[in-house]
């Protein structure tokens, strides 16, 4: 595992789309490489802010409408 491999896989690692062996190799690399740890931290942080900002993206009025239609189902 080198930096280029690690950078290529960082998204898949974050999305848990890599197998156990690869995950272990990436974890080991990140633990020993400041540069890749920074990259991982930045991507992880980006995911966090996206999650926090976009979680309730369906407008309240739409949710209300959906709820109302569901309640009307016999």
């Amino acid at each position: 595992m080198d930096c280029a491999d690690c950078q290529e896989q960082v998204h898949e690692y974050l999305q848990r789309e890599v197998n156990e062996d690869l995950a272990a190799a990436i974890t080991a690399h990140i633990a020993n490489c400041d540069h890749c740890e920074d990259l991982y931290a930045t991507e992880d942080q980006l995911n966090k802010v996206i999650r926090e900002s976009c979680e309730t993206q369906t407008p309240e009025q739409v949710i209300d409408k959906i709820r109302q239609h569901i309640a009307e189902l016999g």
Partner: peptide
């Protein structure tokens, strides 16, 4: 093994953004 509690500069920048900007 290096264990760092500090964040990278870029992730700190992200941390300081308004939620509206991200959305």
């Amino acid at each position: 093994v290096t264990v760092r509690a500090t964040k990278s500069a870029e992730s700190e920048v992200l941390d300081n953004l308004a939620s509206n900007d991200v959305q």
